[in-house]
Amino acid sequence: MPEPLLEVKGLKVRFATEDGLVRAVDGVDFELERGKVLGIVGESGSGKSVTAMTLLGLTRDQNAAFEGEVVYKGQDVLTMPESRLRDIRGNEIAMIFQDPMTSLNPVYRVGQQIVEAIRAHESVSKRQARRRTIDLLKQVGIPSAEERVDAFPHELSGGMRQRAMIALALSCNPDIVIADEPTTALDVTIQAQILALLDKLRAEFDSAVILITHDLGVVASIAHDILVMYAGRVVEAGPKRELFYDPQMPYSWGLLGSIPRLDRPKQEKLHSITGSPPSLINVPRGCTFRPRCPYAFDRCTEEPELVNRVEVPDHLDRCWLSLDDKRRLRLETIAAEASIA
């Protein structure tokens, strides 16, 4: 197995707030290899965005406390001095944010912002940087890039702005691209284009991609491995096919079951996960999903570890149910209508 590009070990992030200690991330482990796409899936408040931002040191703050390690090229990002972090940010690890409207500066031209990023990390002339910017804009599929390079963000549509964001993220050929809900604000047609683009660019630049989303449909095509997060923890992790065809956590079943599927006959009633995610200040004891889990039993008050419980060694989960029970019970949620089809 090749050396992983990035290794996250026992990451915990806590924020002190007026209401108490928020355990935003409470135990996340993963490895990321070159050329791979890792999908991180979970609801709002599951800690997926905080995890991503911590990888870039963006959550550093007086009120934030960290535990664990984020090892990138042999160095721990968590303890790295700010100056070294600045070298990495945008250069070796880049981020694509969810909302292209608010993450581009509205008073600077799009091209200027990309030129600035390039010149911050490499000593090239303005003209060279501008030429590269135009090339990048072409690469991400922006038509008439020579003119659009001088456009302001508000002159571009949502899809175009997101492309510009991707161009900005790729401007220094990063090793890792973190895409935080890159398509949530976009129409499905544009979403399909952006996902195809991300995958193509990953193959071309041989970077690794971390794709964060709340929609399992988005990761189905381009991810290699998937982490499912709930209340700050990884509750299930494994290769994509394992997660889709042999999901072990009732939470993953719920996520899979609540997406209306166009390739199947219409369901009578959509499956939904009852209730809402717990407050991260007061996380339930034992299994954090217990209060919303329809299959919870006595043992669930005891905390389950993230370990391998199935035949495939890379597939980890946190659920006390026996393997047979899981494989039987999950049919109620995910495959109920497939058996009729």
Partner: peptide
Amino acid sequence: AVPIPDPDVEAKRETIL
């Protein structure tokens, strides 16, 4: 263009961009 949460179906699906 609507993604389907099933890798096998996804692999076969043709998206008209």
